[in-house]
Design a protein around this nucleic acid. Structure first.
Lengths: 334, 334
DNA sequence: TTGAAAGCGCTAACAC
DNA sequence: GTGTTAGCGCTTTCAA
């Protein structure tokens, strides 16, 4: 068996209570005993048992996180930022993948609740179907939504302003002379897809541009971008610009266009969303909307910690303005 | 406070022990009481406390995982596979990012040990400097290395045969007529870099090809691929083929070559390693070595579970043969 | 300042 | 089949 605080206490010739005081850095111990206990702990190679401590303290120093799909490069970027920030406060991350499935998501939420996580950071799969999971969670643990949110549900959220982000791309391509635009994005299940789509429509309206361009909605994956490109090509006429719902879609779409000798940006402008790691390495490099991961992570944790400290805080939604990153997929003059 | 097993027992009018038996699915309870306890638990919305259970059982149903950098797309792929497989056994994943730093890695290992993870899956940062962290871990918890391993250290490992993988790429480009080859990879800190480099040298030797081509060693990142491409271009003459240590490097390198009007595969052949999600969407699509994530994850967990069941098992190293995926970066005839 | 002891919620002997 | 009880390792009253 591993060495326990009892062993340390014995070896140091003090009570368990004193050993505990020393080991947790309490002030009320004489310097003499502090030295003896520390010495014994070192000698025995004592490591505190976080499980026992958690049971006693009622706090695990663990934060749960649930993302729809770890493989989608946008999420690891967020996870990485969250994890780093947690490390600085001595907490660890219990990570779950909901596999884009509200049922799995629900079960993961409950698993994390059972584990007594101090709080939960979640990217809800669906704007509607994630409702029950959220409902369940919110009764048990502090929770903050990041990136996506559940509609009509009062829980903290932090993310970029999706509408604004898409507006920026639309205005940008419009300023380059584009009049007809297609949107290739995901079906309107998630708040991200919903808001980006809304932003697209609103921007077109505001700019007085034609609203009858194609709206191809599938998934947030490259494969869908490829398929959507085929559909656009088969339709006979390309729009001036294709606004993609995220970078993955854009990457797949760019590949298919290239395969069909369509030149970007000469024949059509293309934009993405997220600014994933590879967005600057596509051919041509992709104009996109940058999500400030570090800032999102830090705001999410700030919100979470505030709610951990005080459960009945008013709900906050923090939307961060994203920034347009212009690259060659919309600018021929490299 | 949350509802405990005591509340359930009271409400059902049985002892805590009986409630526990029902809730853990023990057979030795009368159908009558099973029904009553289940009913009460449902009514009260009882959720077992995993922390208390873990303390009592001495097993947390948690597996720790440490990767060098979550942002590198190869690792999320592995994490995803591991996490999915864990879910099927009711366990959760405590994920840490060692930020390519052996010191951080060491501290993460200890944090996970303190948390009483049932086992640890680690991609060691360095073939040499991760030694102390591994040493520490191995005394406390079952551990298996995945992808990379620490030299001269007796701990289970599962990964692809890096040498074989690179051999395959070298033989492949050789069969296409390439004689001079450059390698662009990471410095030989990690076993992956080491073995891939060794595989490269051996293959050249075996094939009787010139051994004096450039060896550019930096990091496993796209930016390094870009820089290395510049260096190759500045050197005046390109080799017939460039063998990259991973796909990220290849992606960066392809971008820089394109920027300099170098045609791939006509002017130079390029290969990668890992078959990350975007390898098939680069321009041109990248010939690479596929790592079977699911299989690696499943073997790693098999090894880990075996060691959890019996600590003193002989150490195993399982190397899986990777498969070459040929795409246009080595085949002009699209 | 120090120690004794209660108890976090649960499971598993051990009795009946 | 069911209940009583001891403790998992730790922190934190409460007394001294």
């Amino acid at each position: 068996m591993a060495v326990t605080i009892r062993d340390v206490a014995e070896q140091a010739g003090v009570s368990i209570a004193t050993a505990s005081r020393v080991l947790t850095g309490s002030k009320n111990v004489s310097a003499d005993l502090v030295a003896r206990v520390d010495e014994s702990a070192r000698e025995l190679g004592y490591r505190h048992n976080a499980v026992a401590r958690a049971l006693r303290r009622g706090c695990t120093n663990t934060v749960g996180m649930i993302v729809p799909e770890i493989g989608n490069p946008f999420f690891p970027a967020i996870v990485e930022a969250v994890e780093r920030r947690l490390q600085t406060t001595g907490r660890d991350l219990l990570l779950c993948d909901s596999q884009q499935d509200p049922a799995i998501e629900h079960s993961r939420v409950m698993a994390l609740v059972d584990r007594q996580v101090d709080g939960l950071i979640i990217v809800p799969v669906s704007a509607t179907e994630s409702h029950t999971a959220m409902e369940k969670a919110v009764g048990h643990t502090p929770i903050v939504q990041i990136d996506r949110y559940v509609e009509e549900f009062a829980a903290d959220w932090v993310g970029v302003d999706d509408e604004l982000g898409i507006s920026q791309t639309v205005e940008h391509v419009a300023s380059l002379g584009a009049r007809t635009m297609a949107m290739v994005s995901a079906t309107l299940d998630s708040s991200a897809a919903l808001r980006r789509h809304a932003g697209f429509e609103k921007a077109l309206t505001r700019l007085g541009l034609p609203l009858d361009g194609p709206r191809l909605l599938g998934t947030f994956r490259a494969e869908w971008g490829r398929v959507a490109a085929c559909q656009l090509l088969e339709s006979g006429s390309l729009p001036d610009a294709i606004i993609c719902g995220n970078d993955e879609i854009a990457v797949g779409l760019l590949g298919e266009l290239r395969r069909n000798q369509i030149r970007v940006p000469q024949d059509v402008l293309v934009t993405g969303f997220d600014d994933i790691r590879f967005a600057e390495m596509t051919d041509p490099p992709l104009t996109t909307v940058r999500q400030p991961h570090e800032q999102l992570a830090s705001e999410a944790l700030r919100l979470l910690d505030a709610r951990i400290a005080q459960h009945d805080l008013p709900v906050q939604r923090i939307s961060v303005a994203p920034s347009l990153v212009v690259r060659q997929s919309t600018e021929g003059h490299a």
